[in-house]
Design a protein around this nucleic acid. Structure first.
Length: 635
RNA sequence: GCCCUUGUAGUUCAGUGAUAGAACAAUUGCCUCGUAAGCAAUGAACGUAGGUUUGAUUCCUACCAAGGGCUCCA
């Protein structure tokens, strides 16, 4: 009898008979482990439970509570869904069916348009397949054999996939269904306990808009019903704080048919925006920035010169003035270049930091517009920093700390990504290398962790992007630092060095919020509309109990607004409970209830949005407290 | 831009081949009120343009807009 040695995760060696399956090994370690086993990891590769181990190697069990385990479950669920779809519509052709972050999808090509109602029918069919507890089997075949199989099913998508593969191809089969798949899979369909089909959507074959449009069904699956329910509940939560819904309810902004992708900010949204901008200006002044403003419409020659005509034309809007061609700016940089060129600069002036809250317009495809998150015009909190080459690293180091300061105020966590040279870009390889290395050095020498995105840079230079994470764990790209050797070259920017000669400065483009509008959308969802007091468009609502208290309410209001506090008085002829409910729904941080007692003692009864009735304090005390809260930007 | 779904009052949602209904909001009146909805009355809508039909908000077509999706490779 042959024995083999398996190295387990705790570095111990286990001896088993040659040919023992992954499942059996797990059972020998512990029956409990075998019960929770989804598949195994043998010599680093994921393998099915039925996989027989024939040689020494490392071994570990993948269980239902690991990310890989859930992935396998979802993958098998995708196969079951494909099987159900084929039973219902035998002429369907299968494209791809991978797992994604929170579930899976499968793309189909079929004549019938799948409707949301069909999802229930498909689910019912899937439940039958699960109830039958069909064993899932793996076969390894040659490419030609595989091609033969899918030719019979007339499935040109799979044939295309097979053509791209190496010699050995694996097929998974359950009942009458088989699919091309790398695996691994659950051992049988009965192990699927909790799944749900979520939506149908169109998707191009291989994401290419010149290829046929397929029908994609999204779904998700979990090992426990309670996990599925928790996931669905989290989705509901996210829906409740959707910035489009909250923005309407709190009267922050609107999007109208008259301006698709062009948001209107309402008075309260404008308060929010102005508060953000005040904060931005204050910090930028402290950090040595000067502020400029450049025109929205500029002559087309400028855009030829900047390279936008060649690289960004598709996203730009154009207009004619006095017979000349003009363009509406999609970016602020060319205007910034002209400001720099307006006078001579000495090396002593550098780094020169020019900030601009610039309104840019970009033509985005109609199908991608989304609330404030994806729009056709937005305000960038831009800045262009001109400096000596030897100042790059320090400047970037300072910038990272600067951006960090902003995000901390909102309680956002974030991570950074470094993007390198894309196709269709400008400049020499050497410039790109120098620029990329400077960014890398600033990150690495300061001990920052980052993700590398090859080929994802801007057309004029590499960049560091900041992805912040909101309270639901979703990430949003906001800040970015982009190094640019091209623009100074194209605009022939110079400074006079110590030697009295002209030299070429290096430039950084950077934003902190990214788009002010989008940042507003993000914080709406992050705070679910319940903004910290310093940001809240209305910080206090004074609520007189009855009409006899209106006069004192005005006294209270005058004192507070004298300190710059934003407030409203609710003088409607309604009951106290009614007014409180409404203020509560408007998520106003503080309600000040004033009646006879308060009037007598020059006090206010404070009710907080979060904690309810806080009791009575003197008007002066409340004024001091809230001023301090606003000043410190307490979360 | 492309695919699917959806457009009814300020908002959320009913509904019908012939008279379009509710709740909340708004306005007005009554109640003068102590911590999440007092009572009543009133005004207010079928996205746009064609077509089918005796008759269309409803069925059909086009357009406009909104929602989901179009990177995550068997």
């Amino acid at each position: 009898m042959n024995y083999i040695n398996l190295k387990l995760p705790d570095d111990s060696i286990m001896q088993v008979k040659k040919g023992t399956t992954v499942q059996e090994v797990a059972y020998q370690i512990s029956p409990r482990l075998a019960k929770d086993a989804v598949c195994g990891r043998y010599n680093g590769d994921l393998v099915d439970l039925q996989y027989p181990i024939n040689a020494d190697g490392t071994y570990s069990v993948v269980t239902i509570d690991s990310p890989e385990g859930i992935d396998v479950l979802r993958h098998t669920t995708a196969h079951v869904m494909a099987q159900a779809v084929l039973r219902l519509w035998p002429d369907a052709k299968l494209a791809i069916g991978p797992t994604i972050e929170n579930g899976f999808y499968y793309d189909f090509d079929l004549g019938h348009s799948i409707t949301p109602e069909d999802l229930e029918t498909i689910e019912a069919e899937m439940h039958k397949i699960i109830a039958d507890d069909l064993p899932v089997k793996r076969f390894e075949v040659s490419k030609d054999e595989a091609a033969q199989l899918f030719k019979e099913r007339n499935d040109n998508y799979k044939l295309e996939l097979i053509a791209d593969l190496d010699n050995e191809v694996s097929i998974y089969q359950q009942g009458d269904f088989f699919d091309l798949c790398r695996g691994p899979h659950l051992s049988s369909t009965g192990r699927i306990k909790a799944f749900k089909l979520l939506s149908v959507a169109g998707a191009y074959w291989r994401g290419d808009d010149s290829k046929p449009m397929l029908q994609r069904i999204y779904g998700t699956a979990f090992f426990k019903k309670s996990d599925l329910d928790a996931y669905l509940k989290r989705m509901e939560e996210a829906k409740k704080r959707d910035h489009r819904k909250v923005g309407r309810e709190l009267e922050l902004f609107v999007l109208l048919e008259e301006g698709p992708g062009f948001p209107f900010l309402l008075p309260k949204g404008m308060e929010l925006r102005n508060t953000l901008i005040d904060f931005w200006r204050e910090e930028h002044k402290k950090a040595g920035y000067l502020e400029i403003s450049t025109p929205i419409i500029l002559h087309q020659n400028l855009w030829h010169r900047s390279g936008h005509w060649d690289h960004y034309k598709e996203n730009m809007y154009f207009t004619k003035i006095d017979g000349e061609d003009y363009a509406i700016k999609p970016m602020n940089c060319p205007g910034g270049m002209l400001v720099y060129k307006n006078k001579m600069h000495s090396y002593r002036d550098l780094p020169l930091r020019l900030g601009e809250l610039g309104l840019v317009h970009r033509h985005e495809l109609s199908g991608v517009l989304h609330g404030l998150m994806r729009v056709r015009n937005f305000t960038q909190d831009d800045a262009h920093i001109f400096m000596l080459p030897e100042q790059i690293k320090d400047e970037i180091t300072d910038l990272i700390a600067f951006i960090d300061k902003f995000y901390s105020v909102f309680g956002f966590k974030y991570h950074m990504e470094l993007s390198t040279r894309p196709e269709n870009s400008m400049g020499s390889d050497e410039d790109w290398e120098v620029a990329t290395n400077a960014l890398k050095a600033a990150l690495e020498e300061n001990g920052y962790e980052y993700i590398l995105n090859e080929g994802d840079g801007a057309f004029y230079g590499p960049k560091i992007d900041f992805h912040l994470e909101d309270c639901l764990g979703r990430t949003w790209q906001c800040g970015t630092i982009q190094l640019d050797f091209q623009m100074p070259e194209r605009f022939d920017l110079t400074y006079v060095g110590q030697d009295g000669e002209k030299h070429r400065p290096v430039m950084i483009h950077r934003v902190v919020f990214g788009s002010i509008e989008r940042f507003i959308g993000i914080i709406i969802e992050h705070f679910a509309g319940a903004f910290p007091t310093w940001l809240a468009p209305v910080q206090v609502r004074v609520i007189p109990i009855a009409q006899g208290h209106h006069e004192y309410a005005t006294v209270v209001a005058d004192q507070l607004s004298g300190k710059g506090i934003r407030l409203e008085i609710d003088q409607r002829n309604e009951k106290l409970g009614y007014k409180i409910r409404e203020a509560q729904m408007q998520k106003i941080p503080y309600m000040l209830i004033v009646g006879d007692q308060e009037k007598e003692n020059n006090s206010v009864a404070v009710r907080s949005r979060e904690e309810g009735d806080l009791g009575t304090v003197s008007l002066d005390e409340f004024t001091d407290n809230i001023a301090e809260e606003i000043n410190s930007k307490t979360l």
